[in-house]
């Protein structure tokens, strides 16, 4: 009797079935068993499940990450070094840095022009998407230092590993492995965290933000950390810039860099906050999307947008 709801260990068929899956049936026993009509269903399960492909790891890049982490851990275990040795080694580091600067000073620079967005892979496997009219610069030895300079706006997806630093004119951002957005231009420094943890520093003030948080520095002064929608932080990388309670001036600046425009925002509108988005594919629609909800009257004359 074959009870479908329970595999009975005393049942010969089920015992043999288990052994069959273990490749443990041989000779006549195997031939007899494989002739059993009850096997057909299990045969199908066995064959089809052999076809399942399981993903694999990129073993070289994972090994690099492992070695980096091991090295880092070992360097943290500090040793007490006599002062004279310390001074000697500092002098040696100084000489090495000097030599490195003079010998290998060729930096890598990535620029995006107006209306162009660039996706760039960094040597450590991290990804950067550079918004229009922005510039990114890093040195040849990036994998060792993981430090780069940014002017403009970029979204970063950082591979796990040692600290990763973004230096801008307005402040710097330090992370371990996460994704976040940095906007640094026209005196504004805004960092939004999508995943992981991000440390932001400007003008000796430092803040740590977590997913769905944004911190803003205006002229070096930090404002409170705000909650935003983490799903929309990198919306601009897919053709539509999204803003949540952003000063209208910042939105106008963003439009200007995107479409290469020249817009003066009358002082009456300074301090107004905008929530919404504009598209990257149509100038007139984009302007409409920003200015109409804010009640700003305007006219477009060639590439000049006049606000009234």
């Amino acid at each position: 009797m074959n009870n479908k709801d329970q595999i009975n260990f005393d049942n010969d068929f089920d015992k043999q079935l288990l052994r069959w899956f273990d490749g443990d049936l041989h000779g006549a026993e195997l031939t007899d068993f494989e002739a059993d009509p009850r096997l057909i269903e299990y045969q199908q399960i066995g064959e089809q499940s052999n076809k399942i492909t399981v993903p694999s790891v990129n073993q070289d890049s994972l090994l690099d990450k492992i070695k980096t982490e091991i090295k880092e851990k070992e360097s943290v275990e500090t040793k007490v070094i006599p002062l004279w040795k310390k001074l000697a080694s500092i002098a040696a580091i100084g000489i090495t840095i000097f030599a490195a600067l003079t010998l290998f000073s060729s930096d890598i620079s990535v620029n995006s022009h107006h209306a162009i967005q660039l996706s760039h892979a960094l040597p450590d496997g991290s990804q950067v998407i550079l918004n229009s009219d922005s510039e990114l610069e890093y040195e040849n030895n990036f994998t060792e230092e993981r430090t780069l300079n940014l002017d403009g706006e970029a979204f970063f997806q950082v591979e796990k590993g040692k600290s990763f630093t973004v230096v801008t004119d307005e402040g710097s951002v330090v992370v371990l492995g996460t994704s976040f957005n940095v906007l640094s231009r026209d005196g504004v420094f805004v960092v939004s965290c999508k995943t992981g943890k991000v440390q932001v520093a400007s003008n000796k003030q430092s803040k740590i933000i977590t997913p769905g948080e944004r911190v803003r520095f205006t002229k070096g002064q930090v404002s409170a950390v705000e909650k935003i929608n983490p799903l929309k932080i990198d919306n601009w990388t897919s053709g539509e810039s999204y803003f949540e309670r952003a000063p209208l001036q910042e939105v106008i600046n963003s439009l200007s860099h995107k479409y290469d425009l020249d817009i003066d925002l009358p002082s009456a509108y300074h301090g107004k906050l905008y929530t919404g988005s504009y598209i990257h594919s149509d100038l007139e629609k984009a302007i409409k999307m920003v200015l109409v909800p804010m009640g700003v009257e305007y006219s477009i004359d060639n590439d000049k947008v006049n606000l009234h």
């Binding site: 709801d5 595999i7 260990f9 288990l18 899956f21 399960i45 499940s49």
Partner: peptide, 10 residues
């Protein structure tokens, strides 16, 4: 393994 096979058999 038996439990898995039973569930899949269904």
């Amino acid at each position: 393994m038996s439990q898995a096979l039973l569930a899949l058999r269904k």
